[in-house]
Structure formats: structure tokens, C-alpha cells
Design a protein around this nucleic acid. Sequence first.
DNA 1: AACGTTGAAATAGTTC
DNA 2: GAACTATTTCAACGTT
Lengths: 94, 94, 94, 94
Amino acid sequence: MEAIGGNAAARLQSLVQRIERLEGEKAALSEDIKEIFGEAKSAGYNVPVLRALIAERRKGAAAAEERRTLLEVYRDALGDLADLPLGQAAMAAA
Amino acid sequence: MEAIGGNAAARLQSLVQRIERLEGEKAALSEDIKEIFGEAKSAGYNVPVLRALIAERRKGAAAAEERRTLLEVYRDALGDLADLPLGQAAMAAA
Amino acid sequence: MEAIGGNAAARLQSLVQRIERLEGEKAALSEDIKEIFGEAKSAGYNVPVLRALIAERRKGAAAAEERRTLLEVYRDALGDLADLPLGQAAMAAA
Amino acid sequence: MEAIGGNAAARLQSLVQRIERLEGEKAALSEDIKEIFGEAKSAGYNVPVLRALIAERRKGAAAAEERRTLLEVYRDALGDLADLPLGQAAMAAA
DNA sequence: AACGTTGAAATAGTTC
DNA sequence: GAACTATTTCAACGTT
């Protein structure tokens, strides 16, 4: 276990600083989001429902992507036979 | 629960859009951070330890010290490590 | 930061032992599962597809549960008005 | 890709059932472990530290020591903590 | 055999 | 403050 020399120390400092800066920006965004939910609450909206709505929209986009991925897995497994009736039946069942 | 008029609907839309925009920026920052950790790994740094270091800085030096101390207390209370070489060395020092 | 007395030390030992025992059983189960996948592979099954199939079954069960939870969120937000046309339209849209 | 006959279908079913059964047992064990951590919390133990202790035992004393040492090396290389009271005390002692 | 990718576990945040 | 959800972190697996 050796000590870290000047160059490596500088590199480490740079990495840590960059990460901490981005994390700071992320925390600021989280604050902003929290504020908007506060606004929404003040305006009479039900915050949990609003969250559920946004989560659903996010999930909807993700689900399409996932379905495509899964389809690829099946397609790879079935190979070219995916074009034949049997392969299609297997994929439909999945 | 009354019907949501044109104004309220527009307001809701605005809220959702603003939140989703900020969440998008947050996700982008997360990606950037992940990339920097990748850099660090390529440069030979131990990423989990690096993460621990940054977390420690976030929580503050005092909290980190307290956590370390408590871990030692639990370790001593458990006592099993006393059978290992490292534990014996520590006990000899004390 | 005080040391842990005899009773507390015994309690800690008991907790740790119970946890480690259960974790041991969990690890054994993971091994067993891995073996079965090995069997399946030897029998000519496509393991990634098998994994995808099982994951989908798991997700299918979880999705039903989640849908029910989400429905409750909306129902609570809408209150008794969920029985009225407007409330139903809102739930249908969600 | 040939059609799956009765035997192969039964075999597949058996494999899936065995895997899902073991996964169910695994999930049950996870629940049990969570409960014990809940007990520990009620008894006044610091759960994250307790987890760290158990993880350390799993990985072995040598690895834990190495990780601690590396963390110190990184911390020293970064040097910023020297500005904090705790860091100054440590440097004074050294 | 290292690498990236995916899935499980843990922690942090939010709601009631 | 207790439970649940969501994010973050870690480990395992397949891949190149």
C-alpha cells in the first residue's frame, strides 16, 4: 500500500471535484422539483397522485423499450425461424 | 371534486412539464457522474472506496468519525475477530 | 461513546448470529438455483430466455399488485366521486 | 427449432417450478432478515453500522483492513480534510 | 479474464 | 415515527 504521488493526488482531486460539482447541481435540481410539488400542493393538487401520474408516464416510456428488448431476446433465441408459424406462436405466448 | 376547467388543466400541464424537464436534467447529470466514475476506474482507482470517500465528505468529518468509532465498539462487543491475527495485534497494542 | 456491557454484547452476538445464519441459507438457495439453470442449459434450454420467462412471470404478478395500489391512490384522491362519470373518466385516463 | 413435445414441455415446467419455489424461499429469508434488523433497530442499534459489520465479517478481516487503509490513502491525497478541526487534531497527533 | 450490462440489495426520501 | 416508494449502490452474469 503506497502513498499517492503528486500527479495521482492532483488527478484524484480533479475527479472528486468534478463529481462533487455535478452532485451539487443534482441536489439543486432536486430542490427545484420539491418546490414545484410545493407549488402544486398550494394550488390544490393532490401531490401523491401527481407523483403517481408522472411515474406512470416515465414507466410507460420505459415499458416500450423493455418490450422491445424482450422481443429481441426471443427473436435471437428463435433465430430465423421467427418468421415461421411455430416461432410466431411461441413469441405470442411469451 | 369539481371539473377541471381550461385554466386548471393548463396549469397542471405546466407543472408536469416543468417537473419532467428537471427530472430529465437530473438523469443527465447522473449519467455524467457515472462516466466520471468510469474514468476513475480506468485510471486505477477503487471505485467503491472513492464513493465512500465522497459520501464521508458529504456527511461531514465528525459523522464519519462517529460511525467508525461505533463500528469498533460493535466489533469489540462481538469479540470474534479477536481470534484472528489482526485482532490480536490490535489487542496487543491496547 | 460508551462500551457495550455484557448483556448488550450478548444481544448483539445473538442478532448477528441469527442474521448470518439466514444469510447462509440464502446463499445456499442461490447456489441451488444456479445449479438448476446449469441443468437447464445441459438439457438444451436457452438460459437467457428461461430467465426472461421467469422474470416476466414475476413481473406479471407484481404488475397486478401495483395496478391495484395505483388504483387506490386515485380512488382515495377522488373520494366517493369515483362512482360518478367524471371520476371514472379521470381514472380511465390515468 | 423443433416443436416441444410432451416430455420436453413437462421438463421445462418442472425446471421453472423448482426455480420459482427456491426463489420464493429466498424472498422469505430476506423478509426474516429484514425483521431481525428491525429488532436490532428497536433495541437501539445503528442498523447501517450493523450491516457494515456483517459485510466486513463476510469479506474477511484482511479485506476490511485493506479497504480502510486505501480510504485513508485517498483521504490524505485529497488533503482537504486537513482544514477541518478533526483533521488538524489528527495531524497534530502524527 | 476484464468489461459492460442487468438484476438484486440497501439507503434515502415521502406519505400518512 | 412507521411503512412504503424511489433512488442509488453493489454483485453476478454473460460477453468479447
